[in-house]
Design a protein around this nucleic acid. Structure first.
Lengths: 258, 258
DNA sequence: ACAAAAGTGTTAACCGTACACCCATGA
DNA sequence: TCATGGGTGTACGGTTAACACTTTTGT
């Protein structure tokens, strides 16, 4: 008890016996951001029964650090490892009960399941490289797919609110820490980096000042290559200097974008 | 069940039956800051049995918002209402078990109590007016008193770490939101306000530039009184403009102190 | 040749910082 | 009258924001 179940629980066992392995009343919700086609995206799941969308989440094993749990969930949905996760808020409204929102466990276990109780959820956000993700639905969901951040439908429970708060936290983070490495491919152009910032901040930035600021941070390395194939002048490719990036990650920056 | 217990639980009932009223595996820890004698203070409790110090904390009733729980705990220890509380982090190390840190429930209920399990704790910090607080120990503690922030002893569990993180969060908050109203008496002088900032930031600030910045925020109102009784030139008294303070609280500031 | 995107440089306004001067008060 | 703390103003330097010009490329 308290360890990882020796074998995967069946759906029914999960409802009936999950509380033997997982912490009750507590869940994790991950807001997984990606960037593609000049759009900020978020990974969502669609429930099998209700056909409603939600954030990828999960529960905490009894011997597991909550961050480990978040990492595990992230890995299960995206296949990715070594991802930067940021805890941003705990959601503790007493109305956070699945039963109050039309999300019932199967009839045969109703009123017996730990899942009908009220849950406090701890929110994490993550930034991932869009192209590397292979979205995998979990056993309760039909599909797992990316949504444009401004087209997200009404989600279950307070998940829209959680997403909102995650975006807030991410934006606040933008001015104090470097970000691009996790959202962009290893090599990228300055205009691409700028689009990313503009998309997250939902704000237009001056091309020339942006370039100066980014270079002044001293975390970028310009390569002797240009991105070919565009319709116009070929822009230089850049990559992050790993060492300097890590350092900036630790001690913070003060970017101050317009 | 799930409601507030009709009458206060005895110590033994609390250990044996607490899980009927409170969420298991979940606790609240409050870091309550005060300011007095040019010192930042934090309110701590001393356990009866182990004589060790800890942060004032508590548990979440089944029908209670986690923030309500934090407010309730704050009220019980300080007697204060309407206090600004800020959630700053959830602590989820699986080693957060009382039993692993020499904090055992009474022998007669050992191994039967929900309190021996591992707990995830949600941290809140609060700023309170030192002089208004009447520290009240809870039923498990001997004393409840203020400690200078730089003289805090070794606390139980990871409470030193929680305190550290709370200070971090408070400092980060300082540059984005107004703060003084909650830590200072209603009328205060500019030097007093400056000492408060200096103490929290642990940094000396230029007197003249500080004054300019604070006034530029446009949340202070200078009164036609001066603080008498000091050894030197009598400084003006100020108070916060409530409406403007609230507004700044919502939309944030960008102070940028040296 | 032209439009559109990218690279580079210049300037003026603003802000943060350092510092000087005067005033009030108690010893 | 002197030391100390408080109130107010100025000047310098660096940063930010606004903007102009040139280069490259596909059509």
């Amino acid at each position: 008890m308290g360890k990882k179940p020796a074998q995967k629980l069946s759906r029914r066992e999960f409802f009936e016996k999950g509380h033997l392995y997982y912490l009750t009343h507590l869940s994790i919700d991950n807001v997984i951001f990606g960037f593609h086609d000049n759009q900020l995206k978020v990974l969502l799941l669609e429930w099998k029964d209700t056909r409603r969308w939600c954030l990828p989440g999960g529960f905490i094993l009894k011997g597991e650090h909550i961050e480990e749990a978040a990492i595990r969930v992230l890995h299960q949905r995206t296949g990715l490892n070594n991802i930067y996760l940021q805890q941003f808020y705990a959601f503790g409204d007493p109305n956070r009960e699945r039963s109050k929102h039309g999300i019932e466990p199967p009839l045969e276990v109703k009123n017996k399941s730990w899942l009908t109780e009220r849950f406090v959820s701890i929110g994490y956000w993550a930034l991932v490289e869009f192209s590397k993700v292979v979205p995998k639905p979990d056993e309760f969901s039909e599909t797992c797919q990316w949504w444009d951040i401004d087209k997200v439908p009404t989600l279950i429970l307070d998940h829209n609110n959680i997403l909102e708060k995650a975006l807030d936290s991410l934006r606040r983070n933008l001015n104090d820490y470097p970000v691009g490495r996790d959202l962009l491919p290893p090599k990228f152009t300055m205009p691409e980096l700028q689009r990313m910032y503009e998309t997250i901040l939902d704000k237009q930035l001056d091309r020339r000042n942006f370039q100066k600021k980014m270079l002044a941070l001293d975390i970028l390395e310009r390569l002797n290559e240009r991105k070919q194939g565009g319709a116009h002048k070929a822009p230089f490719l850049y990559r992050f200097d790993q060492r300097k990036y890590e350092k900036a990650m630790k001690q913070g920056l003060r970017i101050g974008l317009q």
